[in-house]
Write a protein that binds this DNA or RNA. Structure first.
Lengths: 331, 331
DNA sequence: CTGAAAGCGCTAACAT
DNA sequence: ATGTTAGCGCTTTCAG
């Protein structure tokens, strides 16, 4: 065998004194093999430190064993944890994860999508956070979203956001809040955390107050946006922030104004990622079951890959997993 | 063309009434083409929404355009940001990123490494945090590490950790600290942040005090470890934590003991990731130039891939990039 | 039980 | 200027 080159099936065959077909058979444990050849081939594989070329296998099998994951950015703890969760589930199945950060930019997501198709990934998990791309219609691979509505026929796995919104708001009222404000990324009727918040306030006869600071606004503008809006509001005594980083901005505002938490201001966040729980252990938050979300998403995706039916055109209801309120010192 | 199948070069050729070679030529813009054929082929490509099969291309070109990234876990902001930085740099070069989380477990890293080789990645960037694996010797692909010593001939890109340790410690002394403690993951002579800390204390004639809580200890044991060690020490008035999450644990300890920060206890962290700066905007920290580290790492890796010389066996000095002290309210 | 050969989708000689 | 063909490394009939 020539040096400086990855060993091939032929190298193993030569060394073991058999044909490539035989080597392939012991590799895949298929067909009848005499114990003697099996032994000799295994030894040759070992000695050459041979590893099958997955590229060649993929070309033949029409399966890459690779899944593309598109998220805004794994630099944010929630998406980082999602990537980890998905990677774990895939690894258990011997599959791999191609990482795509879209930064909430449609053009980036489009490019990534194109690249994933060219690389013939078996499936795509999207947690991107911009408006649905029409390009998703043109692709043949299976797709599943995490916490995102993409299209009626694309399965969406998410936390029970509305229940989470209700729990957070009810909790604030129970702790004596008179005027809980919502701080969220974007306000609209499909914002389920907002819907939970509004439902509870409606029941309590309290006027809602919503502050928005888009997810993808660069710092420090976003923090400034939140702080200014909070300062402009009167009689605020509690905040439900729809993610923990927004909650952090609220806490910072309170510190700068010399307000005591929770006496003067109560705060509840959302997500409860490992990183944020370590950064702000005192924060009351609604924890998403991220590992479960990922497990479910991968389970569904793999099932669709194996079904291989591009005719998955029926509508599918969203799958919602339960959240947990974690009480800290901020309420 | 048959339905439900990705279009192939042959489908395009048939539609355009030319041979596959001609289609390949317009795709790669190689050789002589008449404007007319070029036109017709482009039209066929467009109409079929044809995308070249990268798997087939890789098999032929012996290049996958894919790089494996091994980190402890992108759920932690520092590694999440590294993954984003690397992905960005790769995307600019039309390359892709295969994500591997090792969780500090040697067996996971070994499995990932094996998988990456089987997938014939062009190169590997490792930021894993356990002891160097001997398996790295047996692989032919180019490798670069970020903030990790792997082997003398593997380039290591990192922040100037020692200078960072010095800056943090000097800053604490300037602010009036008498007894700054070091809280770190593991204490040893190659811990450069610790070295910086010790150097400054030696110059000031102060006895160092080092508390360790391993990076990979699961919660809540790690936090408990830190808190107990802090409580057991007397006369502490300042802490240099070698990462921001450790710093958060220290801040939490101070809160629980009713200590004021920075009056009773001054704290400096390390990393300064976007997520942690949002979570704890008040924290004084030594910021790593993560984007620059990634840019440098990818630049070196790509150069080595293109050199294609498996004879990169010469020793290479570590590349250190400057850090920045960010002053917050905790000092 | 094992080997020879076709072919996965593409590119690059080599022809014409 | 374009077509024919071999071959990238592997799996899988089909023979023997």
């Amino acid at each position: 065998m020539e040096a400086g080159r990855e060993p091939r099936l032929g190298d193993v065959a030569e060394r073991a004194g058999v044909s490539v077909a035989t080597v392939s058979r012991v590799l895949n444990n298929r067909g009848y093999l005499s114990a003697a050849t099996r032994e000799r081939v295994s030894k040759a594989i070992e000695e050459l430190d041979y590893r099958p070329n997955q590229v060649a296998r993929s070309l033949l099998s029409q399966r890459t064993g690779t899944v593309g994951v598109i998220v805004p950015t794994v630099a944010l703890p929630f998406y980082g944890e999602v990537a980890v969760g998905v990677e774990n589930e895939l690894a258990e199945r011997g599959m791999r994860l191609l990482l795509c950060n879209s930064f909430g930019r449609a053009d980036r997501e489009r490019e990534h999508l194109d690249l994933l198709v060219r690389n013939r990934v078996d499936g795509i998990i999207s947690g991107a956070h911009n408006d649905p791309l029409p390009e998703y219609q043109n692709i043949r691979q299976a797709a599943v979203t995490i916490d995102r509505e993409l299209a009626p026929h694309v399965p969406n796995v998410r936390a029970d956001n509305e229940a989470g919104g209700r729990m957070a708001t009810e909790h604030l009222l129970e702790r004596g809040a008179r005027r809980p404000v919502l701080v969220t990324s974007r306000s609209h009727s499909r914002n389920l955390r907002e819907r939970g918040y509004r439902a509870v306030l409606a029941e309590a006869g309290i006027e809602p107050l919503v502050i928005t600071a888009d997810f993808h606004t660069p710092e420090p503008q976003r923090t400034r946006l939140v702080h200014d809006a909070l300062s402009a509001s009167v009689g605020i005594d509690a905040v439900f922030a729809t993610d923990d980083l927004q909650a952090a901005a609220v806490l910072e505002w309170a510190v700068q104004r010399g307000m005591r938490v929770p006496e003067d201001l109560k705060v509840v966040g959302f997500d409860g990622t490992i990183a944020m729980r370590r950064a702000l252990p005192g924060l009351t938050t609604v924890q998403q079951p991220i590992a479960d979300l990922c497990a479910k998403a991968v389970e569904i995706l793999v099932a669709r890959i194996e079904a291989n039916s591009s005719d998955c055109h029926e509508e599918v209801p969203a799958i919602e997993l339960p959240v947990t309120l974690i009480c800290g010192r901020t309420t």
